[in-house]
Design a binder for these strands. Structure first.
Length: 442
RNA sequence: GCCGACAUAGCUUAGUUGGUGGAGCGGUGGACUGUUAAUCCACAGGUCGCAGGUUCGAGUCCUGCUGUCGGCGCCA
């Protein structure tokens, strides 16, 4: 029998005084041998169910009284408005346990485990991720995550972008080769993809505006609050556009994600301690832009040791973002600091036409993108100067022999965006089963 | 790859100068007809991460190992 009633609907007054059957999991129980209080949880909220001896038969009373935390139950009763703490209660007339929890192995995640973690994650909670998912904190995170994914799809589809899929087994790297996951492939070697980009460029002349949401894999041994070895990547590519147009899309996308969260997830964000006005500001503000040279000057004026040509590492990003209350772009990095596919600036080929979007509050880079090197001559020059072998990129070079056009795109780390907008302490709080250099289980 | 920290019951932890490990939650049994992390009484639950060493004696001191966590470089 399909579930018909949802606790969230009861809590907003949709079933006042009605008799309903609720299906869910036991969050907490308390009470005496004559009256039991069972806090029932489903995906939409939780509700206190009152079970009085005499109002239900003894078998039902005993069964529900014995239901341990996280047992699944069905209860039928009348929805009662109350002045007590919860606003609503269910006055139970009957019910039963569907999936019992064995007292020899009760639900291991206790209040103390949650309190200690304090929004973070202990080893125990990471080991029991499959059970931790059903706690209120993770549930909120997963709902926020869903809204972010939905907002990305909406943004691109509303603008006639085509969703396009690239292979996950690849022969070559996008970023530096050292961070590739190597996998055996019928006696040969293949790698897990780091980015959809190179294969998206192949479809650029066919679709002109394309995007994806897909996992990317990077074998970085990074142990930071910003890194996963498997992360979700929102990427886009457009024909007939360059660094400026791509950057406009990046800004508009991030702003629309923030707006969707304000509209759909205000409760979840507030309960996680997020200030909604701040998220609204991220949705409403223009994001400032700064050239690499300007960033270097700013850093030098703050006494940071940095030489022109160096990439901006996280510690330097953080110093820069201190001055901003909203995300901001860094553009026009030196070509020596960026991979071959970035197009050198025709006005000054020392630089490439690229941009990074840095999130405030210390969350760092959430988007990296730019204009692509699109002529055969230029791409060969860039590959050779970088010392990258040509063979794995033969298809990529070949694209440019048949009607190359200016184009560009960006990649956005969705998990990072979720971490930033939800205010998470660590990126892995935003993903159901985080993967890092030391953990592939559960 | 590098630097740092930690490891005690299912969970969270206390454990003093080395002298046979306590508690709260959770579980079990009991009391209680309106509880809000309910309360009260009782019970069960420990190879103190692993392996060596010092010592009459090690959760505690030393060495090694393993695991985990935090951070760096790189990136989204």
């Amino acid at each position: 029998m399909a579930k018909q009633y949802w606790i969230g609907d009861i809590l907003v007054g949709s079933h006042d005084e009605e008799v309903v059957e609720l299906c869910g999991w036991v969050h907490r129980t308390r009470g005496s041998n004559k009256i039991r209080f069972l806090v029932l949880r489903d995906s939409t909220g939780s509700l206190q169910c009152v079970i009085k001896k005499g109002a239900v038969d003894d078998e039902c009373f005993d069964a529900l009284s014995g239901a341990l935390i996280e047992s699944s139950v069905r209860v039928t009763g009348q929805v009662i408005r109350t002045d007590r703490e919860h606003g609503y209660e269910l006055s139970v007339s009957t019910g039963n346990v569907v999936g019992a929890v064995n007292p020899d192995s009760p639900f291991p995640i206790t209040e103390s485990a949650m309190a200690e973690a304090d929004g973070g994650e202990t080893e125990f909670l990471l080991d029991n991720r499959h059970l931790y998912l059903r706690t209120s904190r993770m549930t909120k995170m997963l709902k926020i995550r869903s809204t972010v994914f939905g907002a990305v799809h909406s943004y691109f589809r509303d603008r006639d972008f085509i969703e396009y899929q690239a292979p996950n087994f690849v022969a070559g790297a996008v970023e530096g080769g050292s961070t590739l996951f190597e996998v055996p492939y019928f006696g040969k070697k293949a790698y897990l993809t780091q980015s959809w980009q190179l294969y998206a460029e192949a479809a650029m002349p066919a679709l002109e505006r394309l995007y994806t949401i897909a996992p990317s894999f990077r074998a970085e041994k990074s142990r930071t609050r910003r890194h996963l070895t498997e992360f979700w990547h929102a990427e886009m590519e457009i024909a007939w556009g360059g660094n400026q147009e791509v950057m406009e899309h990046g800004e508009a996308l991030v702003r629309s994600i923030a707006q969707s969260l304000v509209e759909e997830r205000e409760d979840e964000l507030s309960e996680l301690g997020r200030d909604i006005d701040m998220i609204q500001k991220y949705a409403d503000s223009k994001y400032p832009r700064m050239r690499y040279d300007e960033a270097v000057e700013t850093l030098q004026s703050k006494g940071v040791e940095i030489e022109w040509g160096q990439d901006l590492d996280y510690s330097k990003e953080k110093i820069l973002t201190q001055d901003f209350e909203v995300p901001h772009f860094l553009t026009h990095y030196p070509r020596v600091a960026k991979p071959f596919y970035h197009r050198p600036d025709p006005e000054d080929p020392k630089y490439v036409l690229c941009h990074d979007l840095l999130a405030p509050e210390g969350y760092g880079e959430i988007i990296g993108g730019g204009e692509r090197t699109w002529s055969e001559k230029e791409i060969l020059e860039r590959i050779d100067e970088e010392g990258t072998p040509r063979e794995p990129y033969e298809f990529y070079i070949d694209i440019r022999r048949y009607g190359g056009v200016p184009h560009g795109g960006f990649g956005m780390g969705i998990d990072r965006v979720c971490a930033w907008l939800s205010g998470a302490d660590h990126i892995r709080e935003t993903i159901p089963f985080p993967r890092d250099s030391r953990r592939v289980t559960p």
